[in-house]
């Protein structure tokens, strides 16, 4: 998701090619080619320029509409709606071939779905499966303490800085049956260990000493491992989840 203006000049983009399974878009105004995943112009007069990223969440519709009841939703184009992918497209795509060179010694399979985080020049890939098992991963990346959290829908993923007013917080989740606090809706709670306050999926504190505080969101990208690795060759991988599986 990008701002479409560069130097105050609005650009109009078209899908116009593919580069190692990530698409290229061309802008009408300068004819430059832009790589979709990085927002960087790779050819043409704009070469080397980057579009400004717009913070974007990938959520289930249920989670989004609960948070934004006043929002608007892009309508399908009735003329081509028959060509849209089926609801289970993710399972189908998992079997698509990977054509870029892969490393046999790699710790993840090319089509493993990961949640990628890039912070202060450091990057790390969290396998979606690990998140589904653990729900919450506390970590530190690029000198920033953070957590990655999967929604109760088991599909939406968000990351937040777990630093608030100069203090680093530890978080844990309590699921139905174990909880002692009054529920804030849903059957899982995110709690910080320092104050016992209860936080929601949007990073806002709902109950307790820190009520009303908002954690700083960190952009995440749900991606295939092979694609993430092309654009983040030095990426670390979160492997604790992988080890827990064995």
């Amino acid at each position: 998701m990008w701002e479409s203006k560069v130097d105050d000049k609005p650009l109009t983009f078209h899908l116009s090619g593919i580069n190692n399974q990530n698409f290229i878009m061309r802008d009408e105004e300068t004819g430059s080619w832009w790589q979709q995943v990085t927002g960087e112009a790779i050819q043409g007069p704009m070469k080397g320029r980057r579009l400004n990223a717009v913070f974007c969440d990938e959520l289930t519709f249920a989670t989004w509409k609960r948070e934004h009841p006043e929002g608007r939703v892009l309508k399908p184009d009735e003329k081509v709606a028959a060509k849209y992918e089926a609801e289970n497209w993710e399972e189908e795509y998992a079997n698509f071939p990977v054509v870029t060179p892969t490393d046999a010694a790699d710790q993840l399979k090319p089509r493993t779905l990961i949640v990628g985080v890039e912070l202060n020049g450091a990057s790390k890939a969290y396998p979606l499966e690990s998140l589904q098992q653990q729900q919450l991963i506390l970590d530190e990346l690029g000198g920033v303490p953070l957590f990655v959290l999967i929604g109760e829908d088991r599909k939406s993923v968000r990351a937040f800085e777990r630093r608030l007013d100069g203090r680093t917080l530890e978080f844990f989740v309590v699921t139905e049956g174990e909880k002692q606090q009054p529920p804030s809706g849903g059957n899982r709670q995110l709690i910080d260990a320092e104050t016992g306050s209860i936080w929601d999926f949007s990073g806002r504190c709902q109950h307790g000493q820190l009520a009303g505080k908002q954690l700083k969101p960190i952009p995440v990208l749900k991606d295939y491992w092979f694609d993430w690795k092309i654009y983040h060759p030095k990426t670390a991988i979160y492997l604790l989840g992988e080890r827990l599986k064995q």
Partner: peptide
């Protein structure tokens, strides 16, 4: 409800792109 959307909120306006 289980369909994924790309969601943005800018200056208080929220939009979902399925």
């Amino acid at each position: 409800d289980k369909g994924m959307v790309m969601a943005v909120t800018i200056n208080g306006e929220s939009v979902a792109y399925p």
